[in-house]
Design a binder for these strands. Sequence first.
DNA 1: GGGAGAATCTAGATCGTTCTAGTTCACCCA
DNA 2: TGGGTGAACTAGAACGATCTAGATTCTCCC
Lengths: 336, 336
Amino acid sequence: MTEQQRRPTLVDVAQAAGVSRALVSIVMRGAPGAAEATRQKVLQAARELGYRPDSRARLLRSSRTRLLGLSFSSSQPFHAEIVDAAYAEAQGRGYEIALSAIASGRPETRAIESLLDFGSEALVMVSPALSNEELARYASQVPVVSLLRDDVGDSVDSVSSDDRAGIRLAVGHLIGLGHRHIVHVDGGTAVSAEKRSAAFRAEMQRHGLDAVVVTGGPNEEDGLRAARCLLDTSLVREVPTAVVAFNDRSALGVIEGFRAEGLRVPADVSVLGYDDSQLARLSYVQLSSVSQDAPLLAAAAVNRAADRVEGAEAPAHVVRTPHLVVRKTTAPPRGS
Amino acid sequence: MTEQQRRPTLVDVAQAAGVSRALVSIVMRGAPGAAEATRQKVLQAARELGYRPDSRARLLRSSRTRLLGLSFSSSQPFHAEIVDAAYAEAQGRGYEIALSAIASGRPETRAIESLLDFGSEALVMVSPALSNEELARYASQVPVVSLLRDDVGDSVDSVSSDDRAGIRLAVGHLIGLGHRHIVHVDGGTAVSAEKRSAAFRAEMQRHGLDAVVVTGGPNEEDGLRAARCLLDTSLVREVPTAVVAFNDRSALGVIEGFRAEGLRVPADVSVLGYDDSQLARLSYVQLSSVSQDAPLLAAAAVNRAADRVEGAEAPAHVVRTPHLVVRKTTAPPRGS
DNA sequence: GGGAGAATCTAGATCGTTCTAGTTCACCCA
DNA sequence: TGGGTGAACTAGAACGATCTAGATTCTCCC
């Protein structure tokens, strides 16, 4: 059945059009140096044969591969939005994106080496968990841009959101509403969890308030567990009136944990998420959240990578200020 | 700073070890034909230089690329689980996976051609939306395996779940609990939506019941909208006692829509999802759902692709029977 | 008409591998 | 002794493109 016919090559097109390989190459790349008439003739022949250039050969030979490697975590739905934005931006600048997922049984190093083996000219890593030494080693081979993590040393570019400012917005918003008992459900061992909890402590202190931080994690179950712990009067003196969660998924868990015990959000307790992911935007969730504007950050990272490839000087650390999106899970505390 | 030193090649390793390129190639591939002593010597030299074979050159030259292309939709969190499983299975069979996401501004054809350009020996497409003619055209170049969609013609392999059986399980379960007024919230224009709604109609008819189908879609908002419509007494004669949703995300929307109007799930109305995704498993959701066992299907698809590459005969259609996972959103109807 | 200069086109080397078809050499056995 | 065998190794072509440098043709102007 499925006749596995050989895919046409430059040579085939050249023969069909009656010109040299080199000229076909010129036409296919859209490079200058071909007369309009022949250009049309060649394109016509290519179209008829169904010719498509072979990336492997093209990447192998050309010094410029115009390929950006992107490593991400397949288990983080949030990363999908980033992938989307990165594709769009790369296309605009004339780059291809090579994807490599970090999955169970496929550690980050594997994902990255695969990208390098394919000839990526630069790497964009979403929330890399590698040590700074490892990052630096990769950075000695190609430009590396860390996305959503900024403490990556001097050899690596980073594009991230200002976590301190984000937490400041969150805390400021809640205090502005009149809250005093605010708890932070942290991200556990997740990347940038420590940064956010430190910022939370600093910010609460600045307002002269007690900073209570309980252990959470990056997903719903973690938030749920933390909420249970907050309601356990044997553990906590007083149930807080507001919670700042590590991210949206965790915030959802917190909300469900409260709901299960009959507390209403935001009437009894306010909950604030982080990321402003699609989850937060669902009409029945309407989660107030700190937006890092991930698509924008992704675009910036891709641009930064392209700049470096095209000869930009030293690595830079781009930090964007997040903004607050107030929806319906935050309100003034009861009885105020 | 970042000294962009040239990456070492076979030649460098050969020189360092004092042997020929070909022999280094043999050693690196683990092919027979090298003495143990030299093998060690070469490996040692490679390690010292930090040599890694260049995929582009390797893929270009070798007839076998051992590369499987996987196209998926970045906006479907459900696909992430599939990617994960595919990686694992491919690794076991000694294949690499090349990922290509379908995103906004990046249509399926683009994603696929990119995979072909990189030299994929076969394609695995998750829920392809292409026409059968287009699929056949790709199938004339390399083996194509459609995952989660089975009406793809004779030139394409498929690995899918039996939608009829799944719906039969769903309806059977609800009827078994005593439900009579069961509604299906369909998938709108999503792949395999029609198949499931047809199966629903057939199954209800078989039990001598009225089959009501309302328009839904593949995500939460669609489910929510459908639920509102079901509660609107000007549109529906009677509120159903049970709903079979197109998938888990839509089911969640349905549940929220009911909850918003004060209906309790499952006390007042039962809701059944489809996919048994991570969402369904969340401890505060506990959604009863039809499991297609996507990781298993993904593994099967990868295996099928590898089989075809390695010379398996004609395309085959593998259909697995789904199973029901009963959790806490289905119960007997009120007053039974 | 002829020569400068631009426009167009081509030959051949090259990227880093794998593959084919050897060569070399030690060893065994008649 | 000498030929056969097999293991270990290698030279050189090939994969399908791009790149460099040079060849050819065209244009234009004095």
